[in-house]
Design a protein around this nucleic acid. Structure first.
Lengths: 148, 148
DNA sequence: CGCAATACCGACCTTTAAAGTAGGCAAACT
DNA sequence: AGTTTGCCTACTTTAAAGGTCGGTATTGCG
């Protein structure tokens, strides 16, 4: 399951992308996206530290992207915020070799799934994400539930 | 991340498959697979309840598969033990429609990933799993770590 | 200059799920 | 009778998710 950190990160990146290279205050992003400002302030710095975005403090400041939306892959963003995308610990980045790896009947399966996952998310850019909603599927009201 | 429940379930199914239609005690499975018997006893009943396996109690009893290994998909096993395979709550089985679904830029992405996941795991059978280890890649010792 | 707006940072809190344990009952065989 | 087995319920422990709070540093504006 992708956690809120990764999901919010994607939405923040989208939101920033929509505002070109203006500096956009996180407060505005939080309001538009309906998530807590304080929580965003914990998620965003890691993106800034890795130069996916840049922030300037003070009045009139905010955050903005450092590249074109087409130059970000979702995989890149998710790896920063979610940690590893490996489906099992054995395959995670710094994991020690599993002692069962030779006899493990499932290792290939997880490995294949991992590759599938990476290929999928690394094959989608932020620009793709923006295009998807540009068409604007109409919202179907209904009662509340779990926001993405 | 796939949890131990799902991973152990796959390994139990493999183990049972290797013993044809003998009844195999969970104790033996636990020993061979190096996992706690007590924990297996919590995972297995759900497989029995859905008739993926059948168990007989008492001396000489144990568990065995109810079908040919080629007739189980990993998806089926994982859905029972892991719950839903949806990457986000919005897409989970009984989830209420997300109020943002119309404007959510990421929904298509998760949906696509979900489909990918289902296709992958539903496209692999238990028989495939057995075949993978039959060839027998040699174990590479190394120091301990996270068993699958 | 002082004030307000902003990003950034560290410590803390609450709730939930994962992972496993303990003990006992019910069936089935020897 | 006694042992082996599956099965069930309740409990514990640990870690992670998801968030809050308060403060600090920086910057523009009047």
């Amino acid at each position: 399951m992708i956690s809120t950190r990764g999901r919010y990160a994607l939405r923040v990146m989208c939101d920033l992308a929509r505002h070109g290279n203006e500096y956009t205050p996180l407060k505005d992003v939080a309001e538009r996206e309906g998530v807590s400002l304080k929580y965003l302030e914990r998620i965003v710095p890691v993106l800034a530290k890795h130069r996916l975005i840049e922030g300037v403090q003070g009045r009139g400041g905010g955050c903005r992207l450092t590249r074109e939306p087409s130059e970000y892959t979702l995989g890149e963003i998710l790896r920063l915020t979610e940690g590893d995308l490996a489906p099992v610990a054995c395959l995670a980045d710094g994991a020690p070799e599993c002692p069962r790896s030779g006899e493990c009947p499932t290792l290939h399966i997880w490995s294949g799934y991992y590759k599938l996952t990476l290929d999928y998310f690394d094959g989608i850019t932020l620009a793709d994400l923006l295009r998807d909603t540009a068409g604007g599927v109409k919202a179907r009201g209904k009662a509340g539930g779990s926001p993405c």
